[in-house]
């Protein structure tokens, strides 16, 4: 077994190490989020006597609210602090001493978490569809689902670059937890996880379509739900593919510069 596979297997074992935390994280959190969104939108629909909002019925909107935050979770992968905490307390030392690329190791652990949340999304989405009985929602095509999953994993890699840049500020500023929180909020807002992008003014939507967040969050959700044409999905995927090398270059640059600043404190 190569070290890559062993890193993934070790991370999975870490995720599974604590039973109650696992179940709360796996089911509890998303279900709570889902029921809050459902209750909120149901009130809005009933108060205004609406059958549709921006072309979405209540079950469709509820499904969107199930998928969008879970997508964000997949993108965010490992918890905030996955790199900055190591820089802050000297935990990075172990990765620098091991004969492997430290940043590559971090990408793998990050993607393992993303993969785990993808599984969570698949299960919760199936439960959600069953509970909500969203009759108007068209049947998901397998091809769209597979494309959506692949899209999501590439998006997670892109988001890793964003996260890594925020985390690596710790080389200069020690504590950067707030930056991670801000990024999560910005990505959630501009990506359409908090409010579908269809609710934004059209000129803002046009701008957002060229930014990476919409391509990373809304792009795969719309693809899975069948709310985007293949051409639209391809366009948002290409936008993301253009952003990734730019972000990756920034990550490498910050890593190189940051390493010169690293003091390995806490050792």
């Amino acid at each position: 077994m190569s070290w890559h596979k062993r890193v993934i297997s070790t991370e999975i074992r870490k995720i599974l190490a604590y039973r109650s935390d696992f179940w709360v994280n796996f089911l509890g959190q998303a279900l709570v989020q889902l029921f809050i969104a459902r209750a909120l939108w149901q009130t809005i629909f009933e108060t205004n006597n609406l059958t549709q909002m921006q072309g979405m019925t209540l079950p469709e909107l509820t499904l969107y609210y199930l998928l969008a935050p879970l997508t964000l979770k997949i993108l965010i992968g490992e918890q905030i602090g996955f790199l900055s905490r190591d820089i802050y307390d000297g935990g990075l030392n172990r990765y620098l001493v091991w004969p492997l690329p430290a940043l590559g190791y971090k990408v793998l652990t990050y993607m393992t978490y993303s993969g785990f949340y993808l599984l969570q999304m698949a299960i919760l989405y199936s439960i959600g569809r069953f509970i909500l009985n969203p009759a108007p929602v068209e049947t998901i095509e397998i091809i769209r689902l597979v494309a959506g999953v692949a899209y999501l994993m590439v998006a997670a890699l892109g988001y890793f670059c964003f996260m890594a840049m925020c985390e690596m500020v710790a080389f200069w500023a020690d504590n950067t937890w707030t930056l991670g929180v801000m990024l999560r909020f910005i990505a959630g807002f501009l990506g359409g996880a908090f409010l579908p992008l269809a609710f934004f003014p059209e000129h803002i939507q046009t701008i957002l379509n060229y930014l990476p967040f919409a391509a990373m969050v809304s792009g795969p959700v719309k693809l899975i739900l069948g709310r985007a044409t293949p051409a639209e999905s391809l366009q948002s995927f290409i936008v993301m593919l253009i952003w990734i090398p730019i972000l990756a270059t920034c990550v490498r640059l910050m890593w190189r510069k940051g390493n010169l600043k690293y003091t390995g404190v806490g050792m």
């Binding site: 190569s2 070290w3 596979k5 062993r6 890193v7 070790t10 074992r13 091991w98 004969p99 492997l100």
Partner: peptide, 9 residues
């Protein structure tokens, strides 16, 4: 578990 990882590393 950690040793198994170190073995590969």
């Amino acid at each position: 578990d950690s040793y198994m990882l170190l073995k590969e590393i």
